[in-house]
Amino acid sequence: MMITMTAPFSVPIIDISPYVLGGTSDERAAVARAMDEACRTVGFIQVVGHGIPAEAADGLASAIDSFFSQALAEKKAYVAPIGINRGYTAPKSEQLSLSLGVESANRMNDFFEAFNIGADPSYYPDYDGELPSGDYSENIWPANVPGFRECVNRWFDEAGALARIMTRIFADALSLPKDFFVGYTDHSLDVLRLNNYALPPGDITLDGELIGMGEHTDFGIVTLLWADRVRGLQVLGRDGSWNDVLPAPGAMLVNLGDLTNRWTNERWKSTLHRVKPPIVNGAIERRRSAAYFHDGNIDAVISALPGCVEPGDEPLYPPITVGQHIFGKLNGSRNLVSNAVGTEREAARVKAAGSE
């Protein structure tokens, strides 16, 4: 097991191979302790020893390049109906800060473009309940991008397996039964979002208010992020400063979502982050990423874990279902309707952070 921290602000690097390859109980306990410390203090982690082959990442990068290199009109053919979290999202269509109930004034919407796939009913053949078709929609696949579906599906499967390893580590770190999260994720509302940060020359006037993706917290249990080693991702430090984060070679960035923040009664934080890709010679330097959101079962009720609330205290958040929580978040970022579903504490963090 390895944990590495450097510099005043840093994202810890944790070797999780004892959980991937079958280490000793002492080795797994050391990983769990390191994970608890990282989740308490930073909320972002870089994991190595995760077991995802390099060729899977190479295939993902190739698929991202192939799809986003198309003309805008071709990509817009894959825009899904409102309320369906699949397919293509054009630049300047979203404002992530609204997912926290915060209006970002005096700047355009986030300029990234994206393509989403997610878990449909075929991913859970053993589940005998009814999955809402709008939330577990069939995926939209581009017809003219050879190999895209195969490469993206492979990454979806690899990332999904790693997400479940992460929740196994979380259970140990929180002194929960090792299968605690299984009952909350056996038909998890998981989504993979491919992101591209670039704009054609002359499309906008570059200025200090340009935001690739506005300040936000992720919505669900845990997010796994593959990203280029290009500056842009910024994470809010405990001192209120915004800090650039580059993934270490071969590492996966992992961060906690709001549901884990609620579950742990803020013992573990869903950390604010944003994307501001650098401007080089008057143009935005291209940056790619792929975020796998492990959000939990749509009908699961999330309430504070007993061990995370002091005797005599009340939980900081009321119980909420995964579906209610995710709907409020997406209604903010996608439909540009400020989220009012229990976001008071989250919105306060955004406002306290400021913009610099």
Rank of each mutant, 00 (worst) to 15 (best):
E215M: 08
L192I: 04
F327N: 04
I326L: 07
G22I: 15
L206E: 09
N331R: 00
F170I: 01
K76T: 15
I298P: 00
R33D: 14
R33Y: 05
N265L: 11
D190W: 04
Y317A: 09
L192K: 05
R274K: 09
T167C: 08
G312N: 02
N335E: 06
E356V: 12
S338A: 15
Y78W: 05
V47G: 06
R33N: 09
D299R: 01
Y317F: 13
S188G: 03
L176N: 05
S93I: 15
L305K: 07
R33W: 03
A347G: 12
A34P: 00
G282C: 13
T321Q: 00
G354C: 09
A57L: 03
A227Q: 08
G323P: 02
G83Q: 07
D15V: 12
G59C: 13
A32Q: 07
W155S: 01
Q324R: 00
N116H: 06
I165K: 06
R345S: 15
G296S: 11
T260P: 04
R86E: 14
G160N: 10
Y292W: 04
E94F: 07
D110K: 01
R107H: 15
G101R: 05
A56W: 13
Q70K: 04
I140G: 06
K75S: 14
I279T: 11
R334C: 03
D58A: 13
Y197Q: 06
V79N: 00
G332E: 10
R286K: 06
C308N: 08
V275Y: 07
